[in-house]
Design a protein around this nucleic acid. Sequence first.
DNA 1: GTTCCTGCAAAGGTTTTGCACCATA
DNA 2: TATGGTGCAAAACCTTTGCAGGAAC
Lengths: 157, 157
Amino acid sequence: MTSAPDNQSVAAVAWREAALAALRERGHRTGGARTAVIERLAAGGGCVEAEELARDLRQAGDQVATASVYRALTLLGEIGLLHRIALPSAPARFELVLPDGAHHHHLVCANCGSTDAFSDEALEQAIQKISARTAFEVRSHDITLHGRCAACRAAAQ
Amino acid sequence: MTSAPDNQSVAAVAWREAALAALRERGHRTGGARTAVIERLAAGGGCVEAEELARDLRQAGDQVATASVYRALTLLGEIGLLHRIALPSAPARFELVLPDGAHHHHLVCANCGSTDAFSDEALEQAIQKISARTAFEVRSHDITLHGRCAACRAAAQ
DNA sequence: GTTCCTGCAAAGGTTTTGCACCATA
DNA sequence: TATGGTGCAAAACCTTTGCAGGAAC
């Protein structure tokens, strides 16, 4: 279990480059809402809701429709640059899929609803072994742990 | 990795008992839509969508509103007898949380959308270790592997 | 100039809520 | 009889789609 290091922003910059390159390669145009979404995702480090991202862009002066944000997020997801996380009774969140393969999973507190991130090597290895041993070709995975966060445990003593 | 054994129905019966007992204990009444939902879940082995379950009940002659099904499913989820699984662009599915703790996770094919189940001891152990080592108290977990199923791999050669 | 992208508005589908009525205890 | 549960209908919510105008190539 490791916490995100300082080179996160480096990875985000690399992600931004990769995303723009992928769009160019596919013949997509630049300069519109889609590019704004990419910039914002890279700047914010991912892990946002669509509506939240749209609001941020509008507050920054860009006139972006929520629909365009969804379109951009869907496209990036299809290319494999973004990961969509669906939690019960919450809008979907979108996270960067970083070029170095680094990723994390989520701890969701059933009491206060807060979410936290973690990563764990043993977990990753277990999944790799499953992938190697079955007919299913594993490309990505979501893991969410539900329970009680440290704060709520402390509050309940 | 093991497949579900024949004692699944035994576990479902135990689940039904546990669910009815939990409701009784909490002072809930029996005999209405809620009980019908429990019976149907136990009979069907879980893993259904709310609307699907409501339809089944209505076809069986019970006049149950979809809203009541949602209410029942939500309550059972709060008690910890049901697990809600949210996949992107699909209605949520509800699965039994069996008394013996047996559970499985999901393989979702990005190509054809089919879902399959698996369970893996190494994965469970990795999660237990995380639980033991952090301030977060893990009570349950979701794992979803995304990729390509055997059929789609074969079709693409 | 052509094509793609976008904003806006409306629709779509799932889930929740309000309310009056009914059934259980 | 009092309370909680239910059905029905409407609302709320997130997300997608249609379409006409505008921007990028």
